[in-house]
Design a binder for these strands. Sequence first.
DNA 1: ATATAATTTTGACGCGCGTAAACAAATGAA
DNA 2: TTCATTTGTTTACGCGCGTCAAAATTATAT
Lengths: 343, 343
Amino acid sequence: MSQNNIRNMDEFAALCGISRPTISKYFFDPNSVRQSTRDRIEAALKEYDYRPNIYAMNQNRRLTKNIGIVVPYLADPFFAEIARVIERRCIDAGFTPTLFSSHGDQSQEIAILDTLRSLRPAGVLLAPLGRASDKAQIEEFCRDVPTILFDSNIEGVGAAFVGSDNFSFVSQTVEYLSRTGSSPCFFEMRNPANPNANKRRHAYLEMMRRLNLEPHLVKIDGAGWGFEEIGRVGALKVLKEGLLPTDTVLCSNDRLAIGFLSACHELGIRVGRDKDCTIRLASHDDHPYSRFTCPSLTTAAHDYEAVSDHAVETLFRLIDAGGKLETREETLFAARLIMRGSA
Amino acid sequence: MSQNNIRNMDEFAALCGISRPTISKYFFDPNSVRQSTRDRIEAALKEYDYRPNIYAMNQNRRLTKNIGIVVPYLADPFFAEIARVIERRCIDAGFTPTLFSSHGDQSQEIAILDTLRSLRPAGVLLAPLGRASDKAQIEEFCRDVPTILFDSNIEGVGAAFVGSDNFSFVSQTVEYLSRTGSSPCFFEMRNPANPNANKRRHAYLEMMRRLNLEPHLVKIDGAGWGFEEIGRVGALKVLKEGLLPTDTVLCSNDRLAIGFLSACHELGIRVGRDKDCTIRLASHDDHPYSRFTCPSLTTAAHDYEAVSDHAVETLFRLIDAGGKLETREETLFAARLIMRGSA
DNA sequence: ATATAATTTTGACGCGCGTAAACAAATGAA
DNA sequence: TTCATTTGTTTACGCGCGTCAAAATTATAT
């Protein structure tokens, strides 16, 4: 490799023996130039390893190749994992993803949208905070920037929503628990941050109605995104005061369940299917840690890959279509029941 | 707020009644203009909410206000948490942080460094993969870009290293375990990804020597960053084959310990301090989940805040100094012993 | 070989802002 | 009031690249 004295595209073009506009075209889309010239450019690229100035590029391009990825809470490995998959897909498609976390905070979510505006991204994949989101601000953002919502829906906002089918989650867990033992009560936060929680409650009630069973909602206090601690404290209270109407508990999500398990252990209550166990516990999400809890969590798993893939594919379609889709799409993927030790 | 027809700094300057160079100066450092003009600019800013084009800005500025944050594995909440704190500090200081995760993969780490180069950041906070890192590439990168290493050190590379004092971690856990029961064996991966693991092993051996106790290393197989599963499989093997030399186990890190606990539960082995427990388990890191395991983990905690703060402060000093520090600094923060249920 | 389509070249302009130098104005202390 | 000092203005250039139109070249098909 020769020494890298190339200062700009002009010099590189000269070294290639190809005009600068053609080089520029190549960098926007390598397929837009004839194969033979592409080969020549790529040969020179290897020899001199020139890279165009991204700032000059993005300043002048009609559309950047940037994609914004926004998750509500990165300390939750669930989001870290989904962000990883989405990142990969974007890079493979020739885009430059940038990851943002709202860290459970409305003002940070708004600040991120503000930053994203000035990044002029080709598109954005946004998992909103949910109840804590400033819907008006998000709506306005989505009018300006091609955006796909995922994980957590806001009705009518964004070009599309891709997520999981909460009814599919709950129906499977409720059916399984009811079939194999006593029917479950539903353990959840009183004021859940995420709209999926509400959908799950409704699904629980509906399933219990269909099965002709009496529903029991167990609502616990707590705010914020520290679900494990909220679940632990809530479970301690419920267990100590004997407020649990059944010996089978279905948690709204795995992180609450992790806290619930912790409380049970503190109180010496054994959880699982064995004879010496007094409680069965199941949950939803298939959180990356749910197979390492004690006992491991019976849960309903997201189809991570399907959600990620479809969100990204939809975004690419949206970008290709110039930022507008004919109608707003909503796609939900079914859950898969994962039977483990806790129920 | 008036309608936002402002296309560039010229127009905004005209509306302000202030010359463009002064506006430009203001955006680089609001304190560099007289208070009265600053007030006028900020009043106009509120009325018209103009924001300079970041691409044009960064193209021409001698130095951008960007800061790169690189962590080895974002699905580990430990890194998510530290990244959150660092992000906050950078924003508060007027910088624009961008978060990257190597996802445990060498080629991705290199790709990130490549991306960072073309971002021309004022500075970078880098937590390397460790053993999997391409040291030569990182070294070359650090020659070009002002970089502070954190969490995982590479001798002589980067302007400074900020991390935790592994000896402080291990000395406290070993001392505590030995004082309150039988002395621990050390449970770790055979080929740990992270150099801290080696430091911890040495610290364990040294502490056992000082206490005049016989050391026992228990090395398990496994590669990659799925430490919980590695710990679980390793513990199953060790426990089934009766290879555990003592009833007290000190794991190299919490994620291995989480896997260990999972294995114990599968085998019906009770862990903790109670009479019916046959194993005591302790560990290091104070992973965000370690207080929710069953039993909760006795561990040595990082001083997250101190590490984050000092890393960021050092980076700011480095930037102010023009990218070079007189001598390479290494700062290690002591651990705090967190006594919980497992030992 | 010729007509046609596809691709590249040439030359030029503009994007929005940083920056520099010479000058003008405001400030503040003596 | 005076003068030195700080701060702002004017003017002008350059950064590296996108993009456009017209001309020149090349590839493909007939």
